[in-house]
Design a protein around this nucleic acid. Structure first.
Lengths: 151, 151
DNA sequence: GTATAAAGTTAAGCCCGCTTAACTAAAAAG
DNA sequence: CTTTTTAGTTAAGCGGGCTTAACTTTATAC
């Protein structure tokens, strides 16, 4: 199982570097927006997963409905998201990014991508192909894992 | 430059998955310790970079010296780090992890590694070798990048 | 050797995010 | 059709993290 050990070592060490780098970038970005962690996260989630309701929010962030309501309020007042009535259930609300919100998130994502683009410049064609293939394999494995029951 | 496009797509998509997963894990861990983000970060940094002084802290986290002092205080009182006098400059302090602190961080790191270990189980030997090589290339590139002047 | 700068600490006060509690409105249950 | 449950909001209050301001102690400048 030597290659298994080698694999573990490689991925862990990559992970350390990547995490460190990402966290730094993320922190800076969140700070630059003037929004809280939760607020940025919420918008990211709206961007990736699409619209959702209030109860969804308080569930995901593990806060009370009241807290969720206030969290959303600020984002609405700042014009980043909008809160509409759910046509299927008039008690419920549907949260969506506004254009302004989408733009803010887009910038955040760009920021995150910049680093890997710089990384790409350091590689030759052959290396890119190799890495690209490797990452696709990992992505598939990750998706399988995600689909499985929690453990 | 088709393979460049392909590379970009692969790495970005991997990044999205990885980030999402890591942030979730990190958040849960930080919460489970009952410590603030900064407190956990500080300990992580002490673990990876070794001892440092107070001014270093307020610089890295971009907070006032007063805030840094209070931040450290709580960790000292909880027994996670210790604050000693710097022998070279008796005004300055040197912060270090205690055994208890080191253990806490070790657990956090383990936690983070668990996911990739599960990922490894999903792969066959050939894939592991391929990925391992690819990651090593990326790691080298990342280290080069880190060494360069900020831009 | 005095004056100034630097490293940290302490205390008081502010702001912000969270919670609980009380509420409204709509849907589901009976 | 009444009762109960569900989705969300509003208001009041608490606690934590941060800041400013004043202070002590040690090092550096001249």
């Amino acid at each position: 199982m030597t290659n298994s050990v080698q694999f573990t070592r490689s991925i862990r060490s990559w992970m350390d570097i990547f995490m460190h780098r990402s966290m730094r970038g993320w922190g800076r970005y969140a700070k630059s927006t003037g929004l809280s962690m939760h607020q940025v996260s919420l918008m990211m989630q709206l961007n990736y997963r699409g619209a959702c309701g209030m109860s969804e929010i308080s569930g995901r962030f593990d806060v009370t409905p009241a807290a969720a309501s206030q969290l959303v309020d600020k984002l609405v007042q700042s014009g980043y998201i909008q809160r509409e009535e759910d046509p299927n259930d008039r008690r419920a609300k549907l949260l969506n990014l506004t254009d302004k919100g989408r733009e803010l998130i887009r910038q955040g994502i760009e920021e995150r991508y910049r680093w890997v683009d710089q990384l790409a410049e350091k590689l030759n064609d052959e290396e890119r192909v190799q890495i690209s293939e490797a990452l696709d394999i990992m992505r598939r494995a990750a998706e399988e894992l995600e689909a499985e029951p929690v453990r």
